[in-house]
Design a protein around this nucleic acid. Structure first.
Length: 99
DNA sequence: CGCATTTGACCCGCGC
DNA sequence: GCGCGGGTCAAATGCG
């Protein structure tokens, strides 16, 4: 469906993404988000007409903490991510570490 | 099997 | 009063 104009320029190394960033993508929109010590569950994704940007909503997967993460980025340039962390965690840093 | 993720619909608030 | 936008939640599905 996509004409694939010049999206080649935004190709990112999958390995690099897997090493230091979290790649939240389907196939079209590649979003590289710098993870933290917290885990988040995506609870919605919407395209903001007003800003002409995509907005992803993430929430902390912990003790109902009010911490929320919002990520906005232009559908044309996933490299221009705009991440906003708001709220406060009621627990220490979550850890995806299994050791 | 569990978890994570995605999409849709619904709701609410605000603006005009 | 109505419309639109934005935001959230829920459910379902897929994959590991």
């Amino acid at each position: 469906m996509e004409s694939m104009a010049s999206l080649e320029t935004i190709i990112i190394d999958e390995e690099q993404v897997q090493e230091q960033n979290i790649a939240l993508a389907s196939s079209n929109s590649l979003v590289v988000i710098p993870e933290d010590d917290y885990k988040w569950n995506k609870y919605g994704q919407r395209y903001i007409k007003s800003l002409q940007k995509n907005r992803s909503y993430f929430r902390c997967v912990y003790n109902i903490c009010k911490a929320r993460k919002k990520v906005d980025w232009p559908p044309n340039e996933p490299n221009n991510l705009d991440i906003s962390y708001e709220g406060d965690h009621n627990h220490g840093a979550l850890a995806a570490d299994h050791s």
